[in-house]
Design a protein around this nucleic acid. Structure first.
Length: 216
DNA sequence: CTCCCGATAT
DNA sequence: ATATCAGGAG
């Protein structure tokens, strides 16, 4: 097959978005299960270096056992470590959940803040988690650079950077604003099903004609 | 930069 | 055995 151009042209970007929208869902629905904003925040904190499927298994029980921010804030550390054990990094995550719950109650009246500066001040919340909240809860156009977005955006030559902040800026320049949140959700779907980190299934990839890294 | 860290696929 | 999974903090 003819190698796709590495240039970031409007035509190639438009094609990429078109294929993604045609292939994957155009719903603003993430894969983490939650009922309230703070539950999405906590689920996202737990999702660091862990599959969202496992996070959902853990949070299903966790949000029943600890139904409120107050319950989290007053939880026993060792007990919560066991409750979230299988998500990995369980000591850090348990400590952060308890701390974060207290911070939400003290600083924000139990509400999840919408500003990036406030979100990243919370325990266990970095730029990626903050952008997930801004996109999914407050519907603020935002680019979420997770492991899939980083890997696949580089394969597509939409960025040459390694730094998540620079990748975020590159993608904001290139992608239409209304596509920002969708791009993230669709790329995750794509990264789990087709463009798998270990062994990308280029033969089954709908982006063959626009991906410079295509191995077909 | 290092450390945190279990579960799964290959 | 090793890479990878919706990263964040010191």
């Amino acid at each position: 097959m003819k190698r796709a151009s590495k240039r970031i042209t409007k035509e190639r970007v438009h094609k990429i978005c078109g294929i993604l929208n045609q292939t994957y869902s155009t719903e603003y629905k993430c894969y983490l299960n939650y009922e309230t904003p703070w539950q999405l925040l906590f689920a996202t904190i737990l999702s660091a270096q862990c599959t969202d499927e496992r996070v959902n298994q853990v949070t299903e029980k966790l949000f029943v056992k600890y139904p409120t921010l107050e319950a989290f804030a007053h939880a026993d550390l060792k007990e919560m470590e066991q409750d979230i054990y299988s998500t990995g990094f369980y000591k850090n995550k348990a400590k952060n959940l308890i701390l974060c719950a207290g911070q939400l109650l003290e600083r924000h009246q139990g509400q999840v803040p919408d500003r990036l500066e406030d979100l990243v001040q919370l325990a266990g919340v970095g730029r990626k988690t903050a952008n997930v909240i801004r996109g999914n809860i407050f519907h603020e156009p935002s680019i979420v650079v997770d492991t899939h977005v980083k890997r696949i955006s580089r394969l597509l030559y939409l960025t040459k950077n390694e730094d998540p902040v620079k990748i975020e800026q590159d993608l904001m320049k290139v992608l239409p604003r209304e596509q920002w949140i969708l791009y993230n959700i669709q790329i995750i779907t794509h990264g789990r099903s087709i463009c798998i980190a270990r062994r990308p299934k280029c033969g089954e990839c709908p982006l063959q004609t626009v991906c410079p890294s295509c191995e077909v």
